[in-house]
Design a protein around this nucleic acid. Structure first.
Length: 892
RNA sequence: GCCCGGGUGGCGAAAUGGUAGACGCAGAGGACUUAAAAUCCUUUGGUAGCAAUACCGUGAGGGUUCGAGUCCCUCCCUGGGCACCA
């Protein structure tokens, strides 16, 4: 056995043996509990894994290993999210085909995952681009289609002029494409959508059942964007509306002519409405009773609005723009005629595309009213009364209180905001003007991509213009293998130019055309966790038994960046599959944990004049070589995420080469809490090499005395002090390590191990000369050594197996049982008690752990150090916290 | 603007309302060595003191409590998400 950690001598050997022994093959033994551990389906990039990825995979590996040793059936699979834009773009750049390229990259990922000793069951692996996989992605598309949840419509979409495809809303950040950085344009193209909006409420409600980080849940709630309010109609004046009545009249003869709906969350401000605004795209605009000049003005504004990109339109502090339509609306309660305007601050895609404007109490409406000199009526006052509202207005601010009292609101005057909302909501409903409504920000999920490298949409367009699904027995619709697949840029998919692909026949045998859009990558990753339950099924996507057994995923691990994309889509698909009777659970991921990112120090220089900066950047990325020659005051080093494009990636290969896989694993566990970001440096890894070496050294010294049958012969009582101490260390370590691993405390798990090691070394100093003669000590040390190795084995499996073998053990630590602690042995015999006077620490006492409270109290009061502070004062109270402290409260 | 996090030694961090800084990294001193590396030992929040010890100390200010890093209120800084969403 080595007496220090020499990874190059044994790590590779063990990995080979694990592989040969099929160590991580999923076990489905009866009578065992199951544990499904999963990490986000990675896209295998050409850069390979960074230590950041390693930080994603090591901790769950530790948990899965422990679960297995605790007797669970563990499913811990890995596959690759191979379809999608990044792969296709890189293949184009390399002038190769994405299929073989991705094959290589995935192989490299697998090699690196093996290199750091992750225990994946590779017999279950697949890529989302495998026809045997995407056949079932298409099958799920058909389920969605049959249920009315997949549909095609003409829509203005986010068009990325660089990647030459449309993007989902989630892929657009501040008006730019998340991936290419290009300013997103609007384009009208027929597109496929999934109707995720049907599930908006379910997706909010389901969050309550999940053990997920609060931040992610909040982001999803935010993204779905539920708001409660009222929707009601405004009649357009002069087009068939019956003349209006004032409030005090009971006459309600409202007859709708031309009208439009608005949505508001603040119906209590309805008496403050002084104008209405419609989105420039609003369908009503053509029908308004106005003159040719008005129509001309509207047309001009519409044309202008169309040219604006989203980034211009939403630019910060942008001046309000808009034009008067020349038409008026009738206020449903007061009967007053109020002007209808159009403005681009009203979005056609949210709510009804029109709003009631309350300039007194909405900042946007206020700005608009000021600019175009429209009336402003205050209708809510707070404690400061009307003067407060006027002060706000004088400062250019709308008065936007959540609570307050109504004024200028007919007989609602004096009601609170909450009451008025209630009463006015009911009033609108009872009078048939509108109803209370829940509105969501969530839009339907745009799934079409006009690109080659994706899952084909299994639809045929018939001659009559109908849409037909490709029958199940004809799936998969295979992606043709072609040499030229560059995007055309005209809004059609590259597949549209491949005649053998496009031309087909419909169910009646007539000539028809295939759908040529492919699905965005998020479709593929919305169900892979189900396929892992039964990956080799060629009859079905999965068997009911397999998903009944394994689902849901017990612990899902990945970065927070997918909060509103993958994690929302996967929940949606799972719910649809549940409703269709194919999946036993509504929520796929019972527990979700986000690991922190690994950041690398990266050089940036100040921007030169006229240089355009990337979104959110205030400097220009430079290479490490360039940084060396740049003047210091031109350079700033920033902690940013490791990525190929930033040239700051540290690979696990380098770290394994220099320090060993186990040292890297342990360091990644130890360096910070799991969820926290890490600023990468090699400084700390050396400490792990030292720690592992200490384990080897201990094992080398104690190993020759090791008695494998210690469990059968080690007495429980009548231990001498040293044996007691050793056993106490051991059982405390088991308790603390296990507790922390159960709750994602990987960093403190390593701390406990180190502390345990330190304690054992202390004990060994005393045990050394007694080992020849005193069997109990040898037995206690045997227990300690074996426990140490098993506790370490999940974090540093290569080293553990190496020592295990050195002790003459057969097989692998993975097949050993995870140790359990005995409370009695873990208990301290003596404890340190803090003695406080008025909450300030004044003394500490070493006492027997079993001491009773009264005795302890007496000891504390009698302490000399305490007497200094209590002498001559009245003791008012003494608080005793057993095993912890005594607090003496004195007067004065 | 709205919604989530986070602010603790030189650094990474730990702490069911109960001795703040466990466990490491880095530093200092020492042992071993011809020397270095490695290893081992001692030491390290600040101020004062030879020392015992005292006082201060978890972003700031208040509060609750016998006792607050931890709970409550106000504010500051910082990371992230959303954002003309009515």
């Amino acid at each position: 056995m080595f007496d220090k950690y020499l990874p190059s001598e044994f790590e590779a050997k063990w990995r080979e043996r694990w592989l040969k022994a099929d160590l991580f093959k999923t076990r489905e033994d009866e009578g065992r509990p199951k544990f499904y551990g999963l990490e986000f389906f990675p896209y295998p990039s050409g850069a390979g894994l960074s230590v950041g990825h390693a930080r994603n995979y090591v901790p769950p590996d530790v948990t899965c290993r422990m679960k297995f040793m605790q007797g669970y059936n563990v499913l811990h699979p890995m596959g690759f999210d191979a379809f999608g834009l990044p792969a296709e773009n890189e293949a184009i750049k390399r002038k190769s085909h994405p299929a073989p390229m991705i094959e290589n990259y995935a192989a490299n990922y697998k090699r690196q995952m093996d290199l750091i000793g992750i225990g994946f069951d590779w017999s279950r692996t697949f890529k989302s681009s495998d026809p045997s996989y995407y056949k079932w992605t298409q099958w799920i598309f058909e389920i969605l289609f049959d249920r009315g949840l997949a549909f095609r419509k003409l829509a203005a979409v986010n068009w990325d002029p660089v990647d030459k495809t449309v993007l989902a809303d989630e892929e657009v950040i501040a008006g730019r494409a998340e991936r290419s950085g290009a300013i997103v344009e609007k384009k009208w193209i027929p597109q496929w959508y999934f109707k995720i909006t049907d599930y908006a409420q379910e997706l909010i409600d389901g969050l309550d059942t999940l053990d997920w980080p609060d931040g992610i849940k909040a982001m999803q709630r935010n993204w779905i964007g539920r708001s409660e309010g009222c929707q009601f109609s405004f009649a357009v004046a002069g087009v068939g509306e019956k003349e209006v009545y004032d409030l005090d009249s009971d006459h309600r003869g409202f007859e709708k002519g031309l009208h439009f709906d608005v949505f508001t969350t603040r119906v209590d401000t309805i008496f403050g409405v002084t104008f209405c605004v419609l989105a420039p795209e609003h369908a009503l605009l053509d029908l308004l009773p106005n003159g040719p000049e008005d129509k001309q003005r509207i047309a001009e504004y519409q044309a202008q609005a169309k040219l604006l990109s989203d980034i211009d339109r939403t630019a910060e502090n942008r001046e309000k723009t808009g034009v008067f339509t020349g038409a008026y609306a009738v206020h449903p309660l007061t009967g007053k005629h109020i002007p209808i305007w159009i403005a681009d601050y009203v979005l056609a895609t949210y709510g009804t595309g029109g709003i009631m404007a309350v300039p007194g109490h909405d900042q946007r409406d206020f700005d608009f009213a000021k600019k175009f000199s429209l009336a402003i009526i205050p209708v809510i006052v707070g404690e400061g009364g009307i003067a407060e509202v006027e002060k706000f207005h004088a400062e250019g601010k709308a008065f936007e209180p959540k609570e307050g009292t109504l004024v200028n609101s007919s007989y609602y005057d004096g009601q609170t905001v909450a009451d008025a909302q209630q009463n006015l909501g009911m009033r609108l409903e009872s009078e048939g003007i509108g109803n209370r409504k829940i509105q969501y920000k969530l839009r339907d999920w745009l799934i079409s991509r006009q690109r080659y490298w994706g899952c084909p949409i299994p639809v045929i367009h018939t001659k009559d213009g109908d849409e037909e699904l490709v029958p199940l027995n004809a799936l998969p619709v295979e992606l043709p293998y072609v040499d030229h697949y560059e995007p055309s840029g005209d809004g059609t998919s590259p597949l549209a130019h491949i005649e053998e692909f496009v031309n087909c026949v419909d169910s009646d045998g007539r000539l028809a055309k295939r759908e040529t859009d492919t699905m965005g990558g998020f479709a593929c990753s919305s169900w892979y966790f189900l396929r892992f339950c039964d990956p080799e099924n060629y009859e079905k996507a999965w068997s009911p038994e397999s998903v009944n057994y394994w689902m849901p995923v017990d612990c899902y691990v990945g970065g927070a960046e997918h909060a509103v994309m993958h994690l929302l889509y996967a929940r949606f698909w799972t719910r649809v599959l549940y409703d269709a009777g194919f999946c036993p659970v509504q929520e796929p991921f019972a527990t979700l944990k986000n690991q922190g990112q690994v950041l690398a120090s990266t050089p940036y220089r100040k921007s030169r004049e006229g240089e355009r900066l990337e979104v959110g950047e205030d400097g220009v990325l430079v290479s490490f070589e360039e940084a060396k020659i740049l003047p210091e005051d031109d350079l700033t080093w920033r902690w940013v995420r490791m990525s190929k494009s930033k040239g700051n990636v540290v690979t696990p290969d380098e770290a394994v080469e220099s320090y060993g896989a186990d040292a890297l694993r342990m360091y990644l566990l130890f360096v910070a809490p799991f969820h926290a970001d890490v600023q990468w440096s090699n400084d700390g890894i050396q400490g792990m090499v030292r720690f592992l070496s200490r384990i080897f050294k201990f094992a080398a010294e104690v190993g020759p005395f090791y008695v494998s049958t210690w469990k059968d012969v080690l007495p429980f009582e009548e231990l001498d002090d040293l044996s007691k101490k050793i056993r106490r260390s051991t059982h405390q370590a088991i308790r603390n390590c296990t507790n922390d691993l159960e709750s994602f405390g990987y960093n403190t798990y390593v701390s406990w191990l180190m502390k345990y090691m330190n304690e054992l070394n202390d004990s060994l100093d005393f045990a050394r000369r007694r080992m020849d003669s005193e069997r109990v000590i040898v037995l206690s040390l045997s227990e300690a050594l074996e426990t140490l190795i098993l506790l370490v084995s999940v974090g540093a499996p290569h080293s553990a197996d190496e020592i295990w073998e050195g002790l003459g053990k057969e097989g692998f630590t993975y097949h050993a049982q995870w140790p359990t602690h005995i409370d009695e042995l873990a208990k301290e015999s003596e404890v340190t008690i803090a003695v406080q006077v008025n909450g300030k620490l004044r003394d500490t006492l070493q006492v027997d752990a079993a001491i009773d409270d009264e005795k302890l109290k007496a000891l504390a009061i009698a302490s000399e150090k305490v007497l200094v502070y209590t002498e001559g004062k009245e003791v008012k109270k003494v608080i005793v916290i057993p095993g912890r402290l005594v607090n003496i409260v004195v007067a004065g």
